[in-house]
Amino acid sequence: MKILVTELMWEDGIEELRRKGYTVDYDMELSRKREELLRLLPGYDALIVRNETKVDTEFLEAAKKTQVIGRLGVGLDNIDLQGARERGIPVISARNANATSVAEYVMAAMLDASRPLAAADADVREGNWNRKFFTGYELSKRTLGLVGMGEIAHRVAKRAKAFGMNVIGYDPFIAPFDHVIQETGIKQVEMDELLKESDFVSIHVPLNKATKHLINRKKFPLMKPHAYVINSARGGIIHEEDLVEAVEAKQIAGAYLDVLEKEPVQKDSPLARVDSIKLSPHIAGLTIEAQSRTAMLIAEEVDRVMNGGQSLCRVN
């Protein structure tokens, strides 16, 4: 049986599928070659994608013999889950495989904001010795606000607590005795209160109609002038033009964006003109360890479904 991989997949997952007897065709740029992708789809029994491949009606209609779609990650806004369900195609995600890596990205962003070592290094190399200018601040006793309290937020909270931070969270789908609150000690608050109290606001919700532009020009004035917002979830949850205005007006100190509404970043994007908005190329979950876990999990779960089994990672 044949499997088509349309985006970056770590080699150990590909080799595992081949070891199990599958023919695996791999083109990490195929998601950007739409016509070729649609032409190839009818010949494959299983498909493995990431976030750039648009699994829409046109895609699903072309995937005539596909038995399962594996998603190398957890975001599902690029996949028509209902359309796949109607066609009897299970979609499986790499449930929690990159959660630790994303949590560590959030910690790295907060540490960078509080102690900008790269900027200090560059300044010293210019011949300066600005000890007062680069006097930072401790994360201890600062407040981290988590918008969304799923597994990644849970792991962020555990690490932030270890740094002595206060952690609060907003999630309308979390009950008072759920483990993320009871086991981690997050204080559950309403959204506006979270924005008012937090020194750092970290986004951990999916992109959907309810969360589109959730953080916008109405919300930024509620935040502290020294606060940062961190988005490692999905582009579009923060209104980017409103963010630029808020930072330039000094309503907030800045942002760390690993995800954007349009990826890769556009050359004329206003985000690129603001130094205190730090951009990274959708890499929060892309550590070596997470890549390997994600690839191996999807390989194993695709194989399970192809052999008539039920996957715990099925999302539709």
Rank of each mutant, 00 (worst) to 15 (best):
L260A: 11
R87G: 03
M223C: 05
V5W: 05
S31R: 07
K33Y: 00
D56M: 14
F163N: 05
K196T: 10
F173H: 14
L38C: 09
A160F: 10
A233C: 13
R71S: 10
F173D: 02
S276L: 01
G308L: 07
D25K: 02
R85Y: 12
Y170R: 04
V180A: 05
R87F: 05
E240Q: 13
Y26N: 07
I168M: 08
N231M: 10
L312T: 07
F133Y: 13
S311C: 05
P90T: 04
V189K: 08
G236C: 07
T6Y: 00
K267F: 01
M165K: 11
H282Y: 12
Y44V: 08
S93K: 15
E138L: 14
T135Y: 08
P176L: 10
N128A: 13
S292M: 15
N231R: 03
E190P: 07
D242V: 01
L8H: 14
V74Y: 11
K2Y: 06
L30A: 06
I69Y: 04
S101P: 00
R125E: 14
L260I: 14
L297G: 01
I252W: 11
H179N: 09
D80Q: 03
E86S: 14
R39M: 06
L222A: 07
E263S: 09
R34M: 00
W129I: 04
Y170W: 15
V5I: 15
P172C: 09
L286F: 15
G150K: 11
A299H: 12
A103D: 11
G75A: 15
I152G: 07
V49Q: 04
H213E: 13
P116V: 07
V229A: 02
I92R: 06
D275Q: 14
L214V: 09
S311M: 06
H239G: 04
F134G: 08
V259I: 08
A119V: 01
M1P: 15
R234P: 02
L271T: 05
R39T: 10
V156A: 02
P42N: 11
A108C: 12
S202T: 08
D77V: 08
Y170Q: 02
N216A: 10
E241A: 05
S202W: 12
S276V: 00
E15P: 03
K161D: 01
G254H: 08
K218G: 14
D171H: 06
A290G: 15
K262S: 05
V201N: 08
R95W: 13
D242M: 01
L243Y: 09
D45R: 13
R234H: 09
D258Q: 05
I174W: 10
R155W: 02
N166L: 04
N307D: 03
K2H: 10
A94P: 03
I277H: 03
D25G: 03
G127E: 10
K218I: 00
N98I: 09
A84D: 04
